Lab assay of single mutants.
Amino acid sequence: LVRYRTISKIPQITLNFVDLKGDPFLASPTSDREIIAPKIKERTHNVTEKVTQVLSLGADVLPEYKLQAPRIHRWTILHYSPFKAVWDWLILLLVIYTAVFTPYSAAFLLKETEEGPPATECGYACQPLAVVDLIVDIMFIVDILINFRTTYVNANEEVVSHPGRIAVHYFKGWFLIDMVAAIPFDLLIFGSGSEELIGLLKTARLLRLVRVARKLDRYSEYGAAVLFLLMCTFALIAHWLACIWYAIGNMEQPHMDSRIGWLHNLGDQIGKPYNSSGLGGPSIKDKYVTALYFTFSSLTSVGFGNVSPNTNSEKIFSICVMLIGSLMYASIFGNVSAIIQRLYSGTARYHTQMLRVREFIRFHQIPNPLRQRLEEYFQHAWSYTNGIDMNAVLKGFPECLQADICLHLNRSLLQHCKPFRGATKGCLRALAMKFKTTHAPPGDTLVHAGDLLTALYFISRGSIEILRGDVVVAILGKNDIFGEPLNLYARPGKSNGDVRALTYCDLHKIHR
């Protein structure tokens, strides 16, 4: 019993810090008490220290592992850092350059016999395009090294910054494609005289377009951006097909006994025919423009016929181009109408809503002055909100995010209106959640004399007048207030005048 009563005193000691020596009952000389009392004092002292730490809000209350900052290894790049964003855009520009100039170089340097010394005699450094290609190869190699040090988000939505895990993730992902696209074939085969082989191998750079397509997928929600990307894709495919079309004609031209190829026909049409040795002929500019003209006309199913396939190889390629053109029509131009419709969806919704308003007016036989006010209010409210119901949009977000959005939407009023000066951010967040926005066209009466005042109004834009009878008592403008002081009276009061809008007004109100 003594032991039980001794232990039962522990909660009292913990909360009230009572010393055991003052209790005459606990001072009985028993061996059990002498053993338990020192333990009680020690526990009391420890609990006292913990309570003191909690009340003082000291940093040592938290466990040590929670006080440590997340460790980022040296030379690790955050995937959302500004440097990584700028670097990704730079790589994107280099990939676009590669997609345009690599097929052009591979096709127009394929057994090209233009006048001038061969590239091997001039030297590697004197070729501007080769120098640019070398810079692109170096940048792609540097990009691989950067990807080995860039964080990523795993399946659990955690940012991984450990170098080993980053390397394994990159090896399992895009490393092989990036490595093949970054191989400097110019340096590996330079001086061997195989410019045709170098041009063909350099087309491996186009593998990076797969990554670019995935990154550009984030802009699919913007109709104008999608339309622009589709047109660029169409032009890029036409450019690639033009390079292939020229390569076919250029390879067949020296081996044909009869002059029936499209390059021969082009030379005869523009007065620059090929001679018996295969030299001469149109310039590279004429060849490229004509090839691009043929691919565009074939892809769009126009086909004027002034550039036509004559050999079997050219006919087979033309059939493939027609098939590609039909697929592009289905996948690209078939979506253009939907994209344009999405661009004008706001206008369509406006006309639909206006039609419903006019049908309501016609069905209920609203008189002319009231009908005009109804239409003007709808037009003004639509121009202010673009038909978007803010309350319906915010309803799907958590309250903390709703408060931040409301604070942002009402920031101008909260910053410049005098009653809100000096208020804490928590108070402003709470008030912003209570605001209701209303609009009024010129001549609209917001409050009639004798109406119950259940709200306090803040003028965000425009001006109003307060009338008693036919006498203008006051004219209020931006950041002015009218209405009933909230919670100042037990019952809502009545208006002693009319409140009429002089201009288009936007008002925020808080109800009782």
Score class of each variant (00 low, 15 high):
374 L>R: 01
307 V>S: 01
251 M>T: 04
110 L>G: 13
120 T>L: 04
118 P>N: 14
214 R>P: 06
388 I>Y: 15
94 L>N: 05
309 P>E: 01
431 L>N: 01
154 N>Y: 05
284 I>P: 01
230 L>F: 12
401 L>E: 01
142 V>R: 01
145 L>E: 01
72 I>T: 15
307 V>M: 01
167 A>T: 04
250 N>K: 14
328 M>I: 08
106 A>T: 04
406 C>E: 01
415 Q>A: 10
325 G>C: 01
310 N>G: 01
176 L>F: 14
376 E>R: 13
401 L>T: 03
361 I>E: 01
240 W>G: 01
272 K>R: 03
267 G>H: 03
130 A>C: 03
403 A>H: 03
429 R>N: 01
141 I>K: 01
402 Q>D: 01
137 D>V: 01
111 K>F: 01
167 A>V: 05
222 Y>W: 08
170 Y>P: 01
182 A>E: 05
83 F>L: 09
160 V>N: 01
117 P>L: 12
146 I>E: 01
259 R>H: 14
137 D>W: 01
92 L>R: 02
99 A>I: 01
222 Y>C: 13
169 H>C: 04
196 E>P: 14
424 T>Y: 03
102 T>Y: 08
273 P>N: 03
262 W>N: 01
361 I>T: 03
233 T>H: 01
386 N>I: 04
172 K>Y: 06
88 D>H: 01
166 I>C: 08
329 Y>G: 04
401 L>G: 02
107 A>L: 01
269 Q>L: 01
158 E>Q: 12
150 T>S: 10
357 V>C: 04
431 L>F: 07
300 T>Y: 05
228 F>M: 13
298 S>F: 03
186 D>F: 12
164 G>S: 10
198 I>R: 10
382 W>C: 01
447 V>E: 03
94 L>Y: 01
73 H>M: 04
434 K>T: 03
447 V>T: 02
336 V>L: 04
203 T>P: 01
441 P>D: 06
112 E>A: 12
275 N>E: 04
96 I>F: 01
226 V>Y: 13
254 P>Y: 14
210 V>L: 04
188 L>C: 10
99 A>T: 01
289 V>Y: 01
417 C>Q: 10
339 I>D: 01
349 R>K: 09
181 A>H: 03
139 M>T: 05
205 R>N: 01
324 I>L: 13
201 L>M: 01
205 R>P: 03
192 S>T: 08
184 P>I: 01
128 P>C: 15
305 G>R: 02
105 S>L: 01
288 Y>N: 01
298 S>H: 03
312 N>E: 01
367 P>L: 01
259 R>L: 01
308 S>C: 04
297 S>G: 04
364 H>P: 02
432 A>C: 12
182 A>G: 13
446 L>W: 01
81 S>R: 10
145 L>S: 01
83 F>T: 07
144 I>M: 14
290 T>E: 01
404 D>I: 01
130 A>K: 15
394 L>H: 03
406 C>Y: 08
110 L>S: 15
346 G>A: 11
90 L>W: 05
412 S>D: 12
199 G>F: 01
409 L>H: 01
390 M>W: 04
70 P>V: 06
433 M>N: 01
119 A>T: 04
393 V>T: 05
362 R>S: 03
427 C>V: 10
334 G>P: 04
212 V>P: 10
94 L>R: 01
194 S>K: 15
137 D>G: 09
220 S>V: 09
296 F>K: 01
349 R>A: 14
433 M>E: 01
178 D>I: 01
375 E>M: 12
293 Y>R: 01
124 Y>I: 11
227 L>W: 01
258 S>G: 14
156 N>K: 14
207 L>T: 13
198 I>V: 11
408 H>E: 06
189 I>A: 14
343 L>F: 14
321 V>F: 03
120 T>K: 12
431 L>P: 02
285 K>D: 01
298 S>D: 01
400 C>W: 11
171 F>W: 04
264 H>L: 01
249 G>D: 01
339 I>T: 03
81 S>P: 01
83 F>A: 11
166 I>P: 01
257 D>N: 07
384 Y>Q: 13
94 L>K: 01
67 L>H: 04
75 W>V: 04
328 M>L: 14
98 T>K: 03
199 G>S: 13
444 D>I: 08
416 H>Y: 13
83 F>G: 14
140 F>Y: 01
337 S>F: 01
126 C>I: 01
179 M>H: 03
216 L>V: 14
113 T>F: 03
379 Q>P: 02
276 S>Y: 04
144 I>F: 01
196 E>L: 10
235 A>H: 01
67 L>T: 13
144 I>N: 01
428 L>Q: 13
301 S>H: 15
95 V>D: 01
250 N>W: 06
133 D>Q: 15
215 K>S: 08
173 G>C: 05
432 A>W: 01
66 K>Y: 15
134 L>E: 01
77 I>T: 03
288 Y>W: 01
210 V>Q: 13
162 H>D: 12
226 V>G: 11
378 F>H: 10
209 L>F: 12
238 A>F: 03
181 A>T: 04
375 E>T: 10
100 V>W: 01
375 E>Y: 04
121 E>R: 14
312 N>G: 01
172 K>G: 05
365 Q>H: 14
311 T>R: 01
413 L>N: 01
421 R>W: 03
221 E>A: 05
68 Q>N: 14
71 R>D: 07
260 I>M: 10
65 Y>F: 06
167 A>S: 04
168 V>Y: 06
276 S>Q: 11
241 L>V: 01
325 G>S: 01
145 L>R: 01
405 I>K: 02
183 I>S: 04
157 E>L: 14
187 L>T: 10
211 R>N: 08
252 E>D: 01
264 H>F: 04
126 C>P: 01
94 L>A: 13
376 E>W: 09
168 V>P: 01
415 Q>C: 06
393 V>P: 03
328 M>G: 05
392 A>E: 07
287 K>V: 04
329 Y>M: 08
357 V>R: 01
73 H>A: 12
431 L>D: 01
122 C>G: 01
308 S>L: 01
262 W>P: 01
79 H>V: 01
423 A>L: 08
272 K>V: 01
394 L>Y: 05
285 K>V: 14
360 F>M: 04
410 N>L: 06
313 S>P: 14
64 E>Q: 15
364 H>A: 08
370 L>A: 01
385 T>Y: 14
77 I>Y: 01
365 Q>M: 04
189 I>C: 11
336 V>C: 01
406 C>A: 14
193 G>D: 04
203 T>Q: 01
286 D>T: 01
240 W>L: 01
341 Q>N: 04
444 D>T: 06
228 F>R: 01
393 V>F: 02
191 G>Y: 03
352 T>C: 09
211 R>G: 06
425 K>G: 11
169 H>V: 04
372 Q>D: 15
184 P>Q: 03
289 V>S: 01
236 L>V: 04
390 M>C: 10
356 R>Y: 15
447 V>I: 11
80 Y>A: 08
244 I>S: 01
327 L>T: 01
137 D>Q: 11
202 K>W: 01
125 A>I: 15
116 G>T: 14
135 I>M: 14
173 G>W: 03
191 G>M: 03
271 G>L: 01
423 A>S: 03
365 Q>N: 03
247 A>I: 09
162 H>I: 11
388 I>N: 06
332 I>F: 05
101 F>C: 07
436 K>Y: 11
344 Y>V: 04
253 Q>M: 14
169 H>T: 05
173 G>A: 04
393 V>E: 03
397 F>S: 02
266 L>K: 04
382 W>P: 03
277 S>L: 05
159 V>L: 05
162 H>K: 10
358 R>P: 03
109 L>I: 03
159 V>H: 07
379 Q>T: 07
157 E>S: 11
292 L>V: 01
408 H>D: 01
444 D>A: 09
299 L>N: 01
222 Y>T: 05
243 C>E: 01
274 Y>S: 01
431 L>A: 02
418 K>I: 05
253 Q>S: 11
372 Q>T: 13
138 I>K: 01
270 I>W: 03
143 D>N: 03
94 L>S: 13
98 T>S: 03
88 D>M: 01
325 G>I: 01
126 C>T: 01
120 T>Q: 07
122 C>V: 01
178 D>S: 01
381 A>I: 08
161 S>Q: 09
367 P>H: 08
262 W>R: 03
